[in-house]
Design a protein around this nucleic acid. Structure first.
Length: 107
DNA sequence: CTCTTGACGAAAC
DNA sequence: TGTTTCGCCAAGA
């Protein structure tokens, strides 16, 4: 657990149910607009029973970047929260635009 | 420190 | 418009 990962987890925990954001936006909110991969890396190392809602983080297009079963799981979880996907597998931009000052981690 | 990998993103073809 | 390349950053070997 590094400082960066801790900040990523704290931030992702603040994403409200039924809302989503992107790796790049998370990175930007953490003050590192070019560390999108770092966000993905941190989330990929979460344990199964984590309290971090990792499934609310998608790529910049609103699509799922996770291959395999885990990715389908993410899609199912999002649909369960009311997030709709179009035929291209991309989520609604209205749900995508979660990014505000109050979303920033305070500590 | 160097090299490699990845749940990224933007630019160039 | 779809695909490939390149840049970026975090972590681990």
């Amino acid at each position: 657990m590094t400082k960066f990962s801790a900040k990523v987890y704290k931030l992702v925990r603040r994403i409200p149910e039924g809302s989503i954001t992107s790796y790049g936006r998370c990175a930007a909110m953490l003050g590192k607009p070019r560390a999108a991969q770092g966000v993905g890396y941190a989330l990929s190392h979460l344990p199964e029973g984590t309290d971090v809602p990792w499934w609310r983080v998608v790529n910049y297009r609103g699509g799922i970047s996770i291959p395999g079963r885990k990715g389908r799981k993410q899609r199912a979880l999002l649909k369960g929260e009311g997030v709709e996907f179009d035929e291209r597998g991309e989520a609604s931009w209205e749900r995508f635009e979660w990014a505000s000052d109050e979303a920033l981690p305070r500590g």
